[in-house]
Amino acid sequence: MKYPSFKPLAQVKRAGVAIVLIATLSGCFGGGATRPQPAELQAVTALVSARQSWSARVGEVNFPLQVSVSGNSVAVASGDGTVALLDAQTGRDVWRVALNTPVAAGVGSDGKVAAIVTKANEVVALQDGRELWRQKVNAQTFTAPFVAGGRVFVLAGDRSVNAFDGQTGRKLWVQQRPSEPLVLRQSGVMLAVGDTLVVGLAGRLAGLDPSTGSIRWEAPLASPRGVNDIERLVDLVGRVSRQGDVVCARAFQASIGCVNAARGSLLWTKPANGVQGIDGDDNLLLGSEADGTVLAWRRSDGERVWTTDRLRYRSLTAPLVAGRSVVIGDFAGFVHLLSRDDGSLLNRLPTDGSAIAAAPVLAGNTLVAVTHNGGIFGFKPE
Rank of each mutant, 00 (worst) to 15 (best):
Y3V: 14
F6A: 09
F6N: 08
V20P: 00
V20W: 05
G27W: 02
G31Q: 09
T34S: 07
E40K: 13
A43Y: 01
V48N: 03
R51D: 13
S55K: 14
G59T: 07
G71C: 04
V74G: 04
A75V: 14
A77S: 04
A77V: 01
G79T: 14
A84R: 13
T90K: 08
G91S: 03
G91K: 05
D93V: 03
R96A: 10
L99H: 11
A105Q: 02
A105H: 07
S109D: 05
D110N: 15
D110S: 07
I116T: 08
I116A: 07
A120I: 00
Q127Y: 00
D128Y: 04
R130G: 14
N138P: 00
Q140K: 10
A144W: 08
G150H: 04
V154Y: 06
A156L: 05
G169A: 11
Q176H: 08
R177A: 11
E180D: 13
L182W: 05
Q186P: 00
M190Q: 13
G194Y: 10
G200S: 06
A206E: 14
D209S: 10
S211N: 12
T212R: 10
T212P: 02
A222N: 01
A222S: 13
N228C: 11
I230H: 05
I230A: 14
Q243K: 12
Q243D: 12
C248K: 11
C248H: 09
A251V: 10
V259G: 12
A261Q: 06
A262W: 02
W268K: 10
K270P: 00
P271G: 10
G292C: 13
S300V: 15
S300I: 12
G302I: 10
T308C: 07
R310I: 14
R312M: 04
R312P: 00
Y313K: 01
A318Q: 06
A322G: 00
V327H: 10
D330W: 11
G333S: 05
S339V: 09
G343P: 07
S344A: 15
R348W: 01
S354D: 09
A357Q: 06
A359R: 15
N365V: 08
V370A: 03
V370I: 06
H372D: 09
N373H: 08
I376N: 04
